[in-house]
């Protein structure tokens, strides 16, 4: 079992309330999509979920138990939006992944493990010996995903993980996420601005705006019958529904 619950979470930065009394359930083995505009508090909520951002009010529960501040040691993992900031420039790719392995393992096993994980995200295992500076944006993001998976997390929080990826690799990452979910029963909070992507991976979804969840429910239902005006606006803004102003 691994179920992540946000209970009346409020996060304030000074005068700004980034997340306002949000309750959200990420049921065991399910992918919940979280969509919303820039600055609506998606990333803040995600970071609160892994304890990176302190909450003023509320708690985050893993299987009904509040997550301890220390020593949760990777039970909830996160993959970030910005591939340029998510890897330590002074650390070899392989070492960065090894650092996230749940328990220290023998050198030989370790290398196998890293090679396997890199392969999983469609990277040449030889890249493990490189420093991030040599990798392009997309390659870095794939390393970051491999690092999160290395910790064998109970819950994975993914913050816009595909927004910097090529469509060709985005497809295989989304396929991978779906496979991890069906085969391993991975529980996941999937933050994305791309409704088509959320529709593809998430069984349930929540729409966030100005720190509040304005709509939540089964993905198919929301996409077909959006209630909130903002959700409707989001649906209208999907790339492909916009005509280019060509001259």
């Amino acid at each position: 079992m691994s179920r992540l619950t946000f209970e009346n979470v409020t996060v304030r930065f000074g005068a700004l309330t980034a997340v306002n009394d949000v309750s959200l359930d990420v049921p065991d083995g399910m992918v919940v999509g979280l969509v919303g505009e820039s600055g609506s508090g998606k990333t803040t909520l995600a970071r609160a979920g892994v304890g990176l951002t302190p909450m003023q009010v509320g708690r985050v529960l893993l299987d009904g138990v509040p997550i301890p501040k220390r020593g949760s040691a990777g039970r909830v993992q996160m993959v970030f939006q910005d591939p340029y900031s998510s890897l330590d420039p002074r650390m070899r790719v392989g070492d960065a992944i090894a650092e996230a392995l749940p328990t220290p393992i023998a050198r030989a096993d370790r290398d196998d493990h890293i090679a396997h994980l890199l392969d999983l995200v469609n990277l040449n295992p030889a890249i493990g010996l490189d420093y991030p500076a040599r990798l392009s944006g997309g390659q870095r993001q794939r390393v970051a995903i491999a690092r999160a998976l290395a910790a064998q997390p109970a819950v994975l929080i993914a913050d816009e993980i595909t927004s910097a990826l090529d469509v060709s690799i985005q497809g295989s990452i989304l396929n991978l996420i779906r496979r991890l979910q069906t085969e391993l029963g991975l529980t996941m909070l999937f933050v994305s601005h791309n409704l088509a992507v959320v529709r593809y991976v998430a069984q349930r979804m929540a729409v966030m705006r100005d720190g509040i969840i304005v709509e939540e429910g089964p993905t198919a239902e929301i996409l077909e019958h959006p209630h909130d005006p903002y959700t409707k606006e989001l649906l209208a803004a999907i790339p492909g529904s916009h005509l280019p102003p060509k001259t």
Partner: peptide, 27 residues
């Protein structure tokens, strides 16, 4: 400290001291 790799190391359970020594000071 702003960088995500520091956050990732913290999530992975690194203590403040080890994050400081491994990720922050070298940078």
């Amino acid at each position: 400290e702003e960088r995500d790799y520091v956050a990732a190391a913290r999530i992975a359970g690194g203590s403040r001291a080890s994050v400081l020594v491994r990720h922050i000071l070298p940078n």
